[in-house]
């Protein structure tokens, strides 16, 4: 069986008037079914470009992306993205409930409601269904965006720095929420972050990218088990060790055998 996502020799160059800029080059990796892969790289290394190429928002200059065996051309139907900028990604003129239902237009009304309610319950926002996004805190808005993506039931959920714009406390809560939800719903997730700790805490595997143009430096397995806990896990020896290795790899420029 083919992997959920297969990226082969991916490269992208932006053409600009003052010369071309290569954001990513020669990038190859896979995401297995049911896996949570964290992609970590220094700021500005081309993580967003990678995500846009995988989601079909841009056509990469080189290489291929295939989603369960089918090459990606345009945005695939069974893929959802959670963006960093939740305040812009949500539609301010719609209630929370309607935001979650928004991409489900083709479904019958009853099923739309049901799916939205289920997704809102999963992120603990059932009580806020009738509110408008601006009435919620940043962390709650991002939960709405996650609920919207979940209600869409994608085969692959992409997350672009999803917790980078919320405070540290909320961030921990949302990380645990993500771990719980993907366990319950068996979602395949690829999450892009610049935060080393986050990548280790969340990931089944961590893919380390180099500075721009981004290439894969290494992919590490994270043998921390399915149950993780913010304080104990982060204090464990394996966690500290893994974090140090990821940090070390981020410094390296050349691919290393992990």
């Amino acid at each position: 069986m083919s992997p959920m996502l297969e990226v082969t020799g991916l490269g992208h160059t932006y053409e600009a008037k003052d010369g071309a800029h290569t954001a990513i080059s020669g990038l190859s990796f896979t995401v297995e079914n049911g896996e949570l892969l964290c992609v970590v790289g220094p700021s500005g290394c081309g993580k967003s470009t990678l995500l846009r190429a995988i989601s079909g928002l841009i056509r990469p200059s080189e290489g291929t992306v295939s989603l369960h065996g089918t090459p990606v051309e345009g945005v695939p139907a069974d893929l959802a993205v959670v963006f960093q900028d939740y305040s812009r990604s949500l539609f301010p003129w719609l209630s929370v409930q309607r935001n979650v239902e928004f991409p489900l237009r083709d479904l019958p009304r009853a099923e739309r409601h049901e799916r939205a309610e289920e997704a809102l319950a999963a992120v603990g926002l059932s009580a806020a269904a009738r509110k408008h996004p601006w009435q919620l805190s940043g962390g709650m808005q991002q939960r709405v965006a996650i609920a919207r993506a979940l209600a869409y039931r994608p085969a692959l959920l992409l997350m672009d720095e999803p917790f980078a714009s919320v405070d540290a406390q909320t961030r921990f809560e949302l990380e645990d929420l993500l771990l719980r939800v993907r366990r319950e719903q068996e979602t395949t997730v690829m999450l892009v972050t610049h935060d080393i700790d986050e990548s280790v805490y969340l990931g089944d595997r961590v893919l380390v990218l180099s500075k721009s143009p981004a290439t894969a430096v290494a992919a590490l397995d994270v043998p921390l088990g399915a149950e993780r806990e913010q304080i104990a896990t982060r204090a464990s020896e394996e966690f500290v060790d893994l974090r140090a290795r990821v940090a070390g790899l981020l410094q390296a420029r050349e691919p290393v055998e992990a």
């Binding site: 928002l57 959802a80 991409p103």
Partner: peptide, 8 residues
């Protein structure tokens, strides 16, 4: 981007 991802 959101609109494109959800294939409106």
């Amino acid at each position: 981007d959101t609109a494109r991802v959800f294939r409106l």
